[in-house]
């Protein structure tokens, strides 16, 4: 009968699925992910006030989830993937700069390409530096827009946009590596992206 508890439940309910998807990415086991969302709900409750504008922002719960994950990761109590964003690391990865075409993938028909992605996408994603992996996770699993991701990462929207671009390019490179090595490259007629634009 408590209206505050009910208000909280009503506020959280629509976000459960997305938070779970994120927790599954931040934690390495489903058990840790379940603990992670539970702690997120508890922390959110402790800070919840229906008058608190922040509480009604979609990103608020994600901010809390990420804070919990970061705390846990720091305490090394759990196997958490969150790592503090290391810009040096990211810079290194994007040495293949934005003026280059996207990493070429061998020509495949649609069904074959889907099979290839089924096979390789998770590994390619996991091979990304944490900061790159995280923006993709926040965008896709968290279904957050760039502004919300900026809020979660506490950085400008422009940074989010460029980081996502770099992350997706890096992902593409990983996929291309896999394709080059894997059985999928049998007819490796590398298809270049479009030419440079100089």
């Amino acid at each position: 009968m408590n209206s505050l508890a009910s208000a909280f439940e009503a506020f959280v309910a629509p976000h459960v699925r997305r938070l779970w998807a994120l927790a599954r990415q931040y934690a390495r086991t489903p058990e840790d992910a379940a603990d992670l969302v539970q702690e997120t709900f508890l922390r959110a409750w402790r800070n919840f006030s229906p008058t608190h504008e922040m509480a009604y922002r979609r990103a608020w719960l994600v901010v809390i989830l990420r804070n919990v994950a970061t705390d846990w990761g720091r305490a090394e109590r759990r196997r958490i993937r969150v790592t503090p964003l290391d810009d040096a690391e990211l810079t290194e990865v994007i040495l293949a700069d934005a003026t280059q075409p996207f990493a070429p993938l061998p020509a495949m028909d649609e069904a074959r390409f889907r099979e290839f992605l089924d096979d390789r996408l998770v590994a390619a994603l996991d091979a990304l530096p944490a900061g790159f992996r995280e923006v993709i996770v926040l965008s896709v699993a968290g279904e957050l827009n760039y502004r919300e991701i900026a809020e979660v990462l506490d950085c400008p929207v422009g940074t989010v946009m460029s980081r996502i671009g770099r992350a997706r390019r890096a992902l593409r490179e990983r996929l291309a590596d896999h394709a080059a090595k894997g059985r999928h490259c049998s007819q490796s007629s590398g298809t270049p992206g479009c030419g440079g634009s100089s």
């Binding site: 439940e9 998807a21 927790a23 379940a34 969302v37």
Partner: peptide
């Protein structure tokens, strides 16, 4: 698809 877990009972239980 790969980032969308199928089983969503765990978070509902947690809530």
């Amino acid at each position: 698809t790969v980032l969308n877990p199928q089983d969503a009972t765990a978070p509902q239980d947690a809530l």
